[in-house]
């Protein structure tokens, strides 16, 4: 008998009822979010010491390169950026920047577009696809994220997008950190040490 058969032979039983599974989700306990003030709620979480992300606000996409430049200059970084082939990003005027779309092992800065922001936890939601690679967001020292204000949603239940799931759906809630040595918190364990969110108010 195969291992699969052996396991299933011991797990015979009724199929779960969908209603029973759904009933377990009614009125979940979760942090309170003021749904009338999503942007403020999101930004408050983003500033918590456990996340300690910075942010800036832009009114339209034309302001994006200047906002990125402002951030990199404030960090004493060159205007060099790993940028995925996302049409919204590519359409901007990046004059003065050195751009590339494959991340180097010691990449200084990468930009990405978040699909959603979640007010409950200050999380940024990403999904992989032909114009959205995953690796640069974990390799770069500075992770710069563009998020539309309209894409801020109250709860983690709002994170998954409907329909066919992408290969990777991921939530980023802060920077890479570790408490593995004597419980002391250190930023930038393996991935980004800095997270900067650009809120698009358009």
């Amino acid at each position: 008998m195969s291992a699969r058969d052996t396991i299933f032979a011991r797990l015979k039983g009724d199929a779960p009822s969908k209603a029973e599974a759904d009933a377990l989700l009614i009125a979940p306990e979760r942090p309170r979010v003021d749904e009338a003030a999503l942007e403020a709620e999101f930004l408050a979480r983003l500033a918590l010491p456990s996340i300690s992300a910075t942010h800036d606000v832009i009114d339209d996409m034309a302001q994006l390169p200047a906002a990125v430049a402002r951030y990199l200059e404030s960090q004493n970084e060159a205007l060099t950026l790993c940028m995925p082939p996302d049409p919204r990003l590519v359409a901007c005027d990046w004059q003065g920047f050195t751009l590339h779309d494959r991340a180097a092992p010691d990449e200084a800065a990468a930009i990405a577009v978040a699909r959603r922001g979640i007010a409950e936890s200050g999380s940024l939601i990403f999904e992989t696809g032909p114009t959205a690679p995953m690796l640069p967001n974990f390799l770069a020292l500075h992770h710069i994220v563009l998020l539309r204000v309209d894409d801020i949603m109250p709860y983690l239940e709002d994170a998954p997008l409907p329909g066919v799931q992408p290969r990777a759906h991921y939530w980023i809630t802060g920077v890479s950190g570790t408490t593995d040595i004597e419980g002391t918190y250190v930023r930038g364990a393996h991935g980004p040490r800095f997270l900067h969110v650009l809120l698009l108010r358009q």
Binding site: R45, S121, S123, L156, Q165, R167, Y170, W171, T173, S176
Partner: peptide, 14 residues
């Protein structure tokens, strides 16, 4: 409230 990185992997590269 949440770990920094939470990822859902669904199958290999598309």
């Amino acid at each position: 409230a949440l770990t920094q990185y939470t990822t859902f992997y669904t199958g290999p590269k598309r």
